[in-house]
């Protein structure tokens, strides 16, 4: 109960603090994905725009990719870092340390939902209607939050022990971004490459998200199962590892 109050405060802080000294404040949460998508759209639309299935649009395809990719990449880095960032608190006041990575993942979820507003705009402008399956994006967001929180919890232990983990994870995330169909459609790749890319869980998250939102991709039942399984496993493994190693790690803060 008290932890819930704390998580609520932490999520609010996470959402507002980054923009405390900016003019439009939390408006950046709306603008950011639009600006990023616009730049990538200018660069890639003529390359990939015509490679989508009929009825599918490149602009919302790209932006959906950006929204999910931002949630995963930023959420993972910030949640993994949140324990060391809050070390001054954790070494003085007893708080279950898990609340910090979990709050970051929840703040990412809120940002994800806010990101649906500009995505809707882009959909409508490019002549696409939202699909009746639209409410299912909540399921995608939920499992994405579990995935981020679980991985963030496990990585946070490494972040405390080894200073260079951040750089290594940064590079790995960049590679992962290219191994995820964020800005290209799967169909541009060779069959072998397509197979490799579809092993990436994030590919399933993206397919589910794009399909649910505006039928802008195809998703199978296996995509939904793969998403559910990886999200659930991530949080289970993350919390278990964290619980086991935290007593030994806290002394290093």
């Amino acid at each position: 109960m008290k932890n819930l109050q704390l998580i609520r405060l932490l999520v609010g802080r996470e959402l507002t603090i980054r923009y405390k000294r900016s003019v439009i404040g939390i408006g950046w949460t709306l603008l950011n994905p639009m600006l990023t998508s616009f730049v990538l759209w200018v660069v890639f639309s003529f390359l990939f725009g015509s490679r989508l299935d009929t009825g599918q649009q490149y602009a919302p395809y790209l932006m959906a990719g950006i929204v999910v990719n931002t949630f995963f990449n930023q959420g993972l880095l910030i949640s993994a870092e949140s324990i060391s960032t809050n070390a001054p608190v954790l070494t003085k006041i007893y708080v279950p340390p898990q609340v910090f990575p979990i709050s970051v993942a929840l703040a990412g979820l809120v940002n994800f939902f806010i990101g649906l507003i500009p995505l809707t705009l882009v959909c409508l402008v490019s002549g696409q209607m939202l699909a009746w399956t639209f409410p299912l994006v909540i399921v995608v967001g939920f499992f994405l939050a579990l995935l981020v929180a679980g991985l963030g919890l496990s990585l946070s232990l490494l972040f405390i022990r080894y200073d260079d983990t951040r750089n290594i994870v940064g590079v790995l995330l960049l590679i992962l971004t290219y191994l995820t169909p964020v800005f290209y459609p799967l169909s541009v790749l060779s069959p072998k490459m397509q197979h490799i890319i579809s092993l990436n869980p994030l590919t399933s998250y993206l397919d589910c998200f794009r399909w649910a939102f505006s039928h802008n991709a195809n998703s199978t039942i296996y995509d939904w199962l793969y998403m559910g399984a990886t999200g659930t496993l991530s949080i289970l493994i993350g919390t278990t590892i964290f619980k086991k190693f935290w007593p030994r790690t806290v002394a290093m803060l």
Binding site: L9, I17, V89
Partner: peptide, 23 residues
């Protein structure tokens, strides 16, 4: 230890108190 420079005094007091387990 739990104070954040960008948050107001009132926000910090609330946050610090909840950290200590208060309602």
């Amino acid at each position: 230890a739990g104070f954040h420079p960008e948050m107001t005094g009132a926000e910090n007091v609330l946050f610090y108190s909840v950290l200590m387990g208060r309602d």
